[in-house]
Amino acid sequence: MAANSGILKGWAVTLVAAIFALGAEDSDQRLIVIAIVPVLMFWLLDAFYLRQERRFRDLYGIVRQKSDEEIDFAMETPTDQQAAFGAFVDPVNSVFYGILLAVVAILTYLLLNS
């Protein structure tokens, strides 16, 4: 699951760059505003995978402390509602997608007001 984070970040940058390239060439530059949508969607997806990874690490921590007789091989991960928000505002995700969102906002403003 850790590899998904890098892949999602790469796709986010690629898709935003493609949208800007298409918006810069077309006569209607208002299409550039659409670039905000993939940034938010990839941010949410990245947070989901980070939360899943943390839940499975927690499950592993629970199982490794049990004796062989106590292990039931259930793959039900512990649930924590605050973990979802914690994954969304994780420093790595917040900095990367925050900067990407800021760049999209600045370039959108500059292109639409030029």
Score class of each variant (00 low, 15 high):
M1F: 07
M1C: 02
A2W: 15
A2N: 15
A3C: 11
A3S: 14
G6H: 09
L8I: 07
L8G: 06
L8R: 10
K9P: 00
K9T: 01
K9Y: 01
G10V: 00
W11L: 14
V13R: 01
V13P: 00
T14Q: 09
A17F: 03
F20V: 00
L22Y: 09
G23R: 04
A24C: 12
S27C: 12
D28I: 09
L31G: 15
I32P: 03
I32C: 07
I32N: 08
V33I: 12
I34A: 12
I36L: 15
V37Q: 07
L40R: 07
F42E: 00
F42K: 02
L44Q: 10
D46F: 01
A47I: 00
A47W: 00
F48S: 09
F48D: 06
F48M: 07
E53R: 12
R54T: 05
R55L: 07
F56Q: 09
F56R: 12
R57K: 15
D58S: 11
L59V: 00
I62L: 10
I62F: 10
V63W: 05
K66S: 05
S67T: 14
E69S: 14
E70T: 03
D72Y: 08
D72N: 11
T77K: 10
T77R: 10
P78Y: 02
D80L: 05
D80H: 07
Q81Y: 14
Q82L: 14
A83K: 07
A83S: 10
F85Y: 14
F85L: 14
G86K: 08
A87S: 09
D90G: 05
D90T: 04
P91N: 08
P91A: 06
P91K: 08
N93V: 01
S94Y: 10
S94A: 13
Y97P: 00
G98D: 03
I99G: 02
L100R: 02
L100C: 03
L101R: 03
L101T: 02
L101G: 06
V103T: 07
V104K: 05
I106F: 08
I106G: 01
L110C: 06
L110R: 13
L111I: 14
L111R: 12
L112V: 04
L112Q: 05
